[in-house]
Nucleic acid binder design. Sequence first.
RNA 1: GGACGCUUAGCUCAGUUGGUUAGAGCGGCUCGUUUACACCGAGUAGGUCUGGGGUUCGAAUCCCUAAGCGUCCACCA
Length: 754
Amino acid sequence: MDKAYNHKNVEEKLYALWEEKGYFKPKIDPKKKPFTIVLPPPNASGKMHTGNVLMIAIEDLLIRWHRMKGDPTLWLPGTDHAGFETQVTFERELKKQGKSRFDFDRESLYTAIFQFVKDNKGAIEAQIRQMGASVDWSRYTFTLDETVVTTVYNTFKKMHDEGFVYRGEHMVNYCPKCGTTFADLEVNHIERKDPLYYMKYGPFTLATVRPETKFGDTAVAVHPNDKRYREYIGKEIEVEGLNGSFKLNVIADSYVDPKFGTGVVKVTPAHDKKDYEAGLRHNLEIKSVIDWNGKLNEKAGKYAGLPVKKAREVIAKDLEEKGLLEKVDENYTHTVAVCYKGGHDIEPMIIPNWFIKVETLKKPALDAVKNGSVKIYPKWREKTYYRWMEEMHDWPISRQIVWGIRIPVWYKIDKNALNLWVVWLDKNKQTQQGNLQTFLNEGISLEEVKAGLQRVMTLSFKGHAAPTYLVAVDDPTVPGDEEKQYVQDTDTFDTWFSSGHWPLVTLGYPNSEDFTYFYPTSVLETGWEILRLWVSRMIMFGLYLTGKPPFAYVYLHGIVRALDGRKMSKSLGNVINPEEYIEEFGVDALRMGLISGTANGKDFAFPRDKVIAYKHFGNKIWNMARFMLFISEQEKITIPQFSRDIEKKMTKDDKDILKAVKKLSASVNMNLEKFRFAQAGEEIYHFMWHELADKHIEQVKTREDKGVALSVLLHVYMTSLKLLHPFMPFITEEIYQKLPGHGDSIMIESWPTQ
RNA sequence: GGACGCUUAGCUCAGUUGGUUAGAGCGGCUCGUUUACACCGAGUAGGUCUGGGGUUCGAAUCCCUAAGCGUCCACCA
């Protein structure tokens, strides 16, 4: 053995050995209860970050522990297509080549992104291996695998048939830059200073940050008890505007805060959430003035075509010139909704989207945690779960992006095709857009439109009949049959809709052997930040489809922050790349260091000192093994197998250390059962270093009966080494192989029985 | 505005149903290179557990209260 442990000679070699010999595959025994974890799928085209490392460290710890105990143990690996994130990354690549997604028809774009993901997915898989994750690669799943798509389609169809799916014309969070809708959860609110314009509005003055939406105003509102304006309520007023004067009704609604501004609000139902709701209450017209690209449309008259922000400046200037601007408060601070990905301003808009009614689905998911059939650790996170489930509202599941599972909705080409708006590339790669029926009337074939199709939209405003559609897993089009021509919706599912099926699809739901044997799984381990986005949805789908929650325990780890305790972010330049730590200190030390940082599920700063400490610890136990080999060589003895015979000859020191290691073993088991990983790890660390090495080994040096002493020492050392293996798999296995007495056995399968 | 969490050694943090002298890692100081390991050993200093009040035989731990910090949710024309 080398004088110092060098992780670089060990890690890759051992992983290959374990994998090759099939140790990661479960030993199915119908009489035994299996232990199962599904790996939260990392982004297939991404790279490992510190959060992934912690996740793998904890899950591998649980998995190895159960496997060593002899449970049929399965850890299911997989990767996620990460719809939105991947498309954004890909588009960035396109931009470097001077292209954009608009240069492609939908299908070609999808194919190109798929290729991009294939080209890049090797990295994350290699890193999962590098981390020592003992996953069963033969059961690998990618979230766009045929089986996943089919399952997702079947669920959607079932939900649709049972009335849980509807085409909603709600106000959604739309990001014009990203070109897609976001769920409320994917929207961030940031504080920002924006000018607050006090503009003259008929007989009133009102305050607004968004003068550019005034063309979409369909009422003016005041508070019902506001004495200042009581005489106007219910009356029509005339307003002088930039595009001539117009008339509006004054409504009374208690959503108006009389203390804000002047107590008068312009109501723009098409572009503001609260106004939209007020519009519904008062049956107001919804007048949309912003298009999908974030520009003012023809209703804005001469301002049509201007992007929202530019329009705001121009309009403010024009208002001033016309004497319609009373004053501007430049120091007004408010919160603005921005998309979580790019930080762009969210434009609340009315865009038809597919929604899931959650009212009846959420109740069982809430109860499952309340009645303990799913237990959440740390327990205080349950409160967050309850609150979220209680206030959960309908879930928009369609995204206006290409990369993902395409919604299996087929619009019929019939008289309502007039209400299908299509954007497509013609033979000359020129973008065409308009009513599908109009194109067909011009003699363009449906096939031609479909071949260049980029997007299908259903028109959503009053006076338009909804298109006829059907939900089908396969294309219902029958060639040549006029009556059976369809075009598929171009939206894709929200990633969380498909990943909500993860425990089901990885196990081959609904009727594979694996599913029967392993479902429900044992523990779901992930970061707390996706409790609501992901965990709650898995519970919901699991209960909906199988009647059983998909896992018995949820363990939520904290988020790894940067060294300075702040969130890691590219702009702060404090992102920690785990590769560097693996290179310098080894995977074992990194894993153990991270685990010791997350004791109570709170967020924590990257514990650099602990990673170093555990690297030193690795070297310490390495040298303890060297010590035994050294002594046996010096004394020219082979270390006797620990046996009854040896036990009879033990000294008090021997008996004490034996007793101590038994106590340690009991404590480690107990702590692991209670998800107290850091505690378990620290106890092993303390025992091996400060009891076994510092005290007991010093005592062994003075012993006459070296045979007995070494036999006991080796036995105790091996026991603690096994306890340590789930935490630090590589070094423990390497030492195990180097010490005498193991025969053909391998560490991965031998938990100490006490 | 609502919820959750935190405040313990110089720094970063553990501390389980209340129970001896409150622990770890890093850092500091003093010794030490003897038969594994300097990625080491033997010692040592350092804490009125954020302040105040209460319950208790006993409180870092439970309750009330004040302050500070952090995170999440909702909302702001």
